[in-house]
Simulated scan of single mutants.
Amino acid sequence: MTLKRMDNVGIVVEDLDRAVDFFVELGLELEGRATIEGEWAGRVTGLGDQHVEVAMVRTQDGHSRLELSRFLRPAVIADHRRAPVNALGYLRVMFAVDDLDDTLARLGKHGAELVGEVVDYQGVYRLCYIRGPEGLLIGLAQELS
């Protein structure tokens, strides 16, 4: 059996509209929005009775997706958004961009904050981490040629 692809990465947010706006500004495209509820959904997640608003955003090449979710029921029970970069578990999502400075300027208007500084990685990439909406950790990389 062969793995076909990684379908998406799920991110839980409080403000779905703000998160969608941020990722669209980054360059992802809104694929669709839906409300998910019902007994079947609770069987998949193990949460029982749930009601979730979701938005799927994808990269322009169509190969990568983020599923942004806002739980209406049950209530969110943990918050890992401000964990430091050496915390166990999922860390961040990294995006390749054409122009890092322009991307930082555009995302700054949506509240993005630089975590450390922009660095040159061996003359191959300019890299940085930012905190996006609700403190989500996002990596940005500009390939140098």
Rank of each mutant, 00 (worst) to 15 (best):
Gly139Asn: 09
Val115Glu: 15
Arg82Ala: 07
Leu88Asp: 06
Pro133Arg: 01
Val24Lys: 04
Tyr129Gly: 06
Val54Pro: 12
Val118Ala: 07
Ala34Arg: 06
Leu144Gln: 14
Asp49Trp: 02
Val20Lys: 03
Phe71Gly: 08
Thr103Phe: 00
Thr103Arg: 06
Ile11Asp: 10
Glu134Asp: 11
Gly62Thr: 08
Asp61Leu: 00
Gly62Leu: 03
Leu26Ala: 02
Thr45Trp: 00
Gly27Gln: 09
Tyr125Met: 08
Thr103Trp: 00
Gly27Tyr: 01
Met1Ile: 15
Asp120Pro: 11
Ala75Cys: 05
Asn8Ala: 07
Glu14Thr: 12
Val115Arg: 11
Gly108Ile: 08
Ile36Pro: 11
Ala105Asp: 13
Ala19Asp: 11
Val93Ser: 13
Glu39Ala: 13
Val54His: 05
Glu67Val: 05
Val9Ala: 12
Asp79Phe: 05
Leu72Ile: 14
Leu66Val: 11
Glu134Trp: 02
Thr45Lys: 00
Val24His: 03
Asn8Pro: 01
Val13Ser: 10
Val119Phe: 07
Pro133Met: 01
Glu31Asn: 06
Glu67Asp: 09
Gly135Ile: 00
Arg73Cys: 09
Thr103Ser: 11
Val24Phe: 00
Thr59Leu: 01
Ile77His: 13
Gly116Arg: 10
Leu30Cys: 02
Arg106Asn: 12
Gly123Gln: 06
Val12Leu: 04
Asp7Asn: 14
Val57Ser: 02
Leu137Asn: 06
Ala78Tyr: 06
Met56Tyr: 14
Tyr125Phe: 15
His80Lys: 10
Ser145Tyr: 09
Val119Trp: 05
Val9Tyr: 03
Asp21Gly: 11
Gly108Cys: 07
Val9Thr: 15
Leu100Ala: 07
Leu114Val: 00
Phe22Ala: 03
Ser145Thr: 02
Ala19Ser: 15
Glu143Ile: 03
Gln142Trp: 05
Ser64Glu: 13
Arg73Trp: 10
Glu31Gly: 13
Leu114Gln: 08
Lys4Asn: 09
Met56Asp: 01
Ala55Gly: 08
Arg58Asn: 11
Arg5Trp: 03
Val97Met: 06
His63Ile: 10
His80Tyr: 12
Glu39Lys: 14
Gln60Lys: 11
Gly116Thr: 10
Gly38Cys: 08
Leu30Val: 12
Asp98Arg: 12
Leu72Gly: 12
Gly38Lys: 01
Gly27Ser: 06
Gly132Glu: 00
Glu39Phe: 09
Leu100Glu: 07
Asp7Trp: 04
Val20Ser: 08
Phe22Cys: 09
His80Val: 02
Val9His: 01
Glu25Ile: 10
Leu136Gln: 13
Arg5Lys: 14
Leu26Lys: 02
Val24Met: 07
Gln142Met: 10
Ala105Pro: 10
Asp61Glu: 11
Gly62Val: 07
Gly135Met: 04
Glu37Asp: 11
Lys109Gly: 05
Glu53Tyr: 07
Gln60Cys: 03
Arg58Asp: 03
Gly62Ala: 04
Ala83Asn: 15
Glu53Val: 03
Ala34His: 09
Phe71Gln: 12
Thr35Gly: 15
Val93Met: 08
Arg92Lys: 14
Arg70Val: 08
Ala55Lys: 04
Arg5Glu: 14
Lys4Cys: 02
Ala141Met: 13
Gly111Ser: 10
Asp120Asn: 14
Arg106Ala: 13
